[in-house]
Write a protein that binds this DNA or RNA. Structure first.
Lengths: 262, 262
DNA sequence: CTTGCCCACTCGTCTATACGAGTATGCCTC
DNA sequence: GAGGCATACTCGTATAGACGAGTGGGCAAG
């Protein structure tokens, strides 16, 4: 049962005071880093590793769980443990909301994804009025009721981002912003048509591990953090006209910003 | 042996098809979220949980390891498992490199930390000449040799950030930039004195789980991702004069950016 | 009173075993 | 040939037990 897992992995050092399961994790990690296991490749099965290292299965599983929490591998029930492939990354440039990008009929997400050769989708669209959290309310200048627009973005069938936009109700109610489809150029174009010429955006970027709900919503494998981005849009009067709370799969994004030096 | 762990935790649902260890994790997570276990508080010990839920110790440890990988709790050998306190967060504003902040003698990190009432430290400072990786070389306009400045930043004794600055060797060699202490205003002030007036910075932000080396260097507890920030500084001639590769403990930072709307 | 040791408690590591559930393959039947 | 089933693999879940190692409090000896 179970042939040798090839000569890729070495032996344990019994004199080391490093825990056995850490030594095993180290060996597999090194093999992955050095390319001896390629992206998407299947690792030796647990029972093969048990035989190779002469340890119990729990020890092997312990080692694999380290690598899983590091985001290096992911296991698939009934199939095996695989080196986690690095998915194509979506680059968010800091000029992505520039006015010049709002002319076309399609949304920024759609245009950009198609340009990159991916199939974009938006789902679980929900628009409703609600009472904001204290944090959202404060960001919107103590708004007491808001319009919330929820949606999930997918690339080639994979969910990559979940976003909620909040707008003061007095501003959005009855306009096309309150419709599921906000029309060409998105809600920012509608806001400007309503006389709220946009001045600038503030963005706050954080990273953390996902909640179970986020794991489900973004179908995250373990060891993948999320980027939390909270953007506030201000009009030229200095009023906060929108807050967008976005949670992104961290392995699918790189954010790019340009800062002036003076 | 082990009194009742108080009435904070309920019972398992044997009819549920959700795994027992997940149910236990759910219960503890909910108790933390609802504030029934406060920040920094000690959870019931493993043996208390074993008794309370009537399961084996491995099952309890499995549940706790979920919460640990979510960054909710951290265990301390010999003491117990504790609700992970949220450390004070350092906010990086997008104007932190503005020229007007470079007048004072102290570094931006020092000034800012002292203003926030924390004790800043910088250690493991190392300055050396080396051959850049292909990525760094490309960012610096195919530089073949670079000056690398490595340092680690600490707040109140806790390491929060590790940074490496790379500068083209022909630009930095023999200047104060090659000294451990680059002088007032930091290397950006020196670069401008050398005639490289800074024009803008590009920043790339990513998030991922830390490597074992990063866990050690930043003393990260499990379930804490890192933010990787790669900044390139350009002078008014359009030349890339510095690349700074920074790894930050994600639970200690929030990045703030301001984007123009046009 | 102080010092130092011991013990009880904590989590860390590891073994051995068992069964369940998802996946893939190939053979056998129709 | 097509369909379905048996089977052998994969990882997932759970039990029971053992010993090690870090921490802190209490007790006993000085």
């Amino acid at each position: 049962m179970a042939a040798l897992p090839s000569g890729i992995l070495g032996a344990l050092d019994p004199t080391s005071d490093r825990a056995v399961f850490r030594q095993i994790a180290d060996q597999i990690r090194e093999a992955i880093d050095k390319g001896r296991f390629k992206e998407g490749a299947k690792l030796p099965s647990e029972s093969e590793l048990v035989e190779h290292f002469g340890v119990s299965r729990m020890t092997v599983r312990n080692a694999l769980s380290i690598l899983q929490s590091e985001g290096l591998v992911s296991s698939e029930h009934g199939k095996g443990v695989f080196v986690r492939p690095r998915p194509p990354v979506r680059r968010l440039a800091s000029d992505r909301f520039a006015r010049r990008h709002r002319d076309q009929g399609k949304s920024a997400f759609t245009v950009e994804a198609e340009a990159a050769g991916s199939k974009p989708e938006v789902d679980s669209l929900e628009v409703r009025e609600e009472k904001p959290t204290p944090d959202i309310s404060a960001r919107l200048g103590s708004a007491r009721k808001v319009l919330a627009r929820r949606r999930r973005y997918l690339l080639d069938g994979r969910p990559v981002e979940f976003a909620v936009s909040y707008l003061p109700l007095d501003l959005a109610r009855g306009t096309q912003i309150a419709e599921p489809n906000p029309g060409p150029g998105g809600i920012y174009a509608r806001l400007e048509e309503l006389g709220h010429r946009l001045d600038h955006f503030d963005e706050e970027v954080r990273a953390r591990m996902p909640s179970p709900a986020e794991v489900k919503m973004l179908r995250l494998s373990s060891g993948v953090p999320v980027i939390s981005l909270i953007r506030t849009a201000y009009d030229t009067e200095g009023r906060a006209v929108e807050v967008c709370d976005t949670v992104m799969a961290a392995d699918a994004y790189v954010l790019a910003y340009q800062l002036p030096a003076n």
